[in-house]
Nucleic acid binder design. Sequence first.
DNA 1: ATCGTTGTCGATAACGTTTTCCATAATCTC
DNA 2: GAGATTATGGAAAACGTTATCGACAACGAT
Lengths: 353, 353
Amino acid sequence: MTGDVEESTVSGRSGSLGNGRVTMQQVAAEAGVSVSTVSKVMNGRYGVSSQTFDHVTAVINRLGYETSLVARSLRNARTNVIGVLVADFEPFSTEVLKGAADAIRGTGYELVAYSAGGRFDEHVGWERRYLSRVMGTLVDGAVLVTPTVTDVQYDGPVVAVDPHTGRSSLPTVAADNLQGARMGVDHLLSLGHRRVGMVTGRADLVSAQLRERGYREAHAAAGVPVDESLLADGAFDPEQAREAARTLLRLPTPPTAIFAANDISALATLEVAAEMGVEVPGSLSVVGFDNIPESALAHPPLTTVQQPMRQMGHDAIAMLVALIAGEQVDDTHVTLETTLVLRRTTATLGDAS
Amino acid sequence: MTGDVEESTVSGRSGSLGNGRVTMQQVAAEAGVSVSTVSKVMNGRYGVSSQTFDHVTAVINRLGYETSLVARSLRNARTNVIGVLVADFEPFSTEVLKGAADAIRGTGYELVAYSAGGRFDEHVGWERRYLSRVMGTLVDGAVLVTPTVTDVQYDGPVVAVDPHTGRSSLPTVAADNLQGARMGVDHLLSLGHRRVGMVTGRADLVSAQLRERGYREAHAAAGVPVDESLLADGAFDPEQAREAARTLLRLPTPPTAIFAANDISALATLEVAAEMGVEVPGSLSVVGFDNIPESALAHPPLTTVQQPMRQMGHDAIAMLVALIAGEQVDDTHVTLETTLVLRRTTATLGDAS
DNA sequence: ATCGTTGTCGATAACGTTTTCCATAATCTC
DNA sequence: GAGATTATGGAAAACGTTATCGACAACGAT
């Protein structure tokens, strides 16, 4: 009656099949029942006596049977997997991934990450092709974390986590670039700075445009006119940002503060300042945008506008799960607040410390 | 005869099916051929005239048909996907992932990353369960990048990228911890230091043991006796490493150099030195291990022993692909050389700069 | 004693491919 | 022009599940 009987019967039989894996048929044969019954046992369905349940369970364990997920997926037309497509494993997407991994817990979905491997720009439309390939066959839904996702269109359950756009045809989770930039520049202005320079970002990205707009709006709100010569193109690129910072600091009357569209750019600005012997924050205040991990380690530690990256990943998954479940999602364009992280690169104007 | 005819026939029909995706049946029906033929066209198999080939291709494009990967996998008993299991998306595993993503190109495999989401230690044996679940059903092979993979056993194509062990029952790609540690300590010794302290790592990990052994061997080779009071337990933990560094620097005759088993520990040591007013590298030289991205940003930038993380990911994939193909792999325990990255935390003994 | 009920279990048809094999039509050889 | 060869297309069986439904025994109720 008990399980001991199971243990003694047919021992090495399962190992006989070449390379393969134990199948449900084999379990059924071994247990002397039908595959239907084994299936029921595996899924805890109603309609099997506790006797046979125990018996089949014992056989399953003994044979080390694991259900074939592809067969199940084929049959059920769903995979219970959510895919996250990242352009590359850089700090931003990695943080988003962590948030997503956190949010996936308890949803019944598995999370897998696909990386385009950096070569993203080479293949325009990669996202599109990726989506048509894996959606509905490998994953039930997808989160896109790619730099230029704006033009992607897709009808299935897909949400874009977008550091660079507030809006797209896809459901989106993004940070409030405008508000963040305004806040960062406001901070500088309230410190007494009147000549605030800006290292701008890639002109084609909405995020960069919004951040510049925030810069202007902050000035307008404070009644400070914008000196156009104080804006230099950094293009979200370290090298170009360095160049932009140099341009700014070599001005006849250089700015006393610089707002960078990017932490990368802000870090570059810091380097240039150090090169030129400009004290930060003594003679120059700097504010960045993003709050990538490196910012805290810079010298001095960078004051910056933080995007809630983990939160973005989290919310994206939550929204996607709702979307897949067919629930009515009220707002498909979530905008998350940014926060100002005060560190040591800003000081009141004229303050030598 | 040409393709124009295709464009004009049946237009909106494909959109009629509820949620679904275009299937091969539909393409076949639409093109007026059998599914076999469509399959042949999709896979470029022999036995279809160029006429029908073009015709079917046109229909495929018009309907936007994509082959169902799960059905294909079920039929072929292979998925053409390789999985990488990481404990968490921290710097080390992220770098490995990049190397892997790079190596996967052109192999015909797709790469997906699974994260245990940090909660790794909570579930002992997670790797085991993961493997039995996904292997042979979602992936054809797997790379394990987990902290304590030593005890995992599995017969399928699996290779472990292991920062902490030179050997395990699984095929392994690892860095040469012994040689690296010896090199790091050697550097210190050759700079004239005679009292070299060590902040050791987690005693249960082979990597930590090897690094300590390297420390001792370097001393032996240089004919310098090891003062046991100069070893303090850092346990690969920031807090504990700080404590260890404090202990070392408060010694009656403190060390003039410290070798840390870890960059994390080295960074902690740097902090403690700053706290206590000990000049680096003026009064204290420091060498770390790993070369995580943060090290370059520390102040002063950390001299450290670099593990070739990208390379490890790359080699792991290469080996795994060979394993899956059933090729004879000569050495299943690859050990990669480490290199010393000289930055600014080391100086000759007594040199005030 | 007969007739529903319930409780168990198994046959079977999908799911969307790929592949092997067979049927036909077209072409070639003598 | 008859038989053999070659091209082309399709039928059907698998891959390993799950869900629906029907079969059957055992049982209580009338």
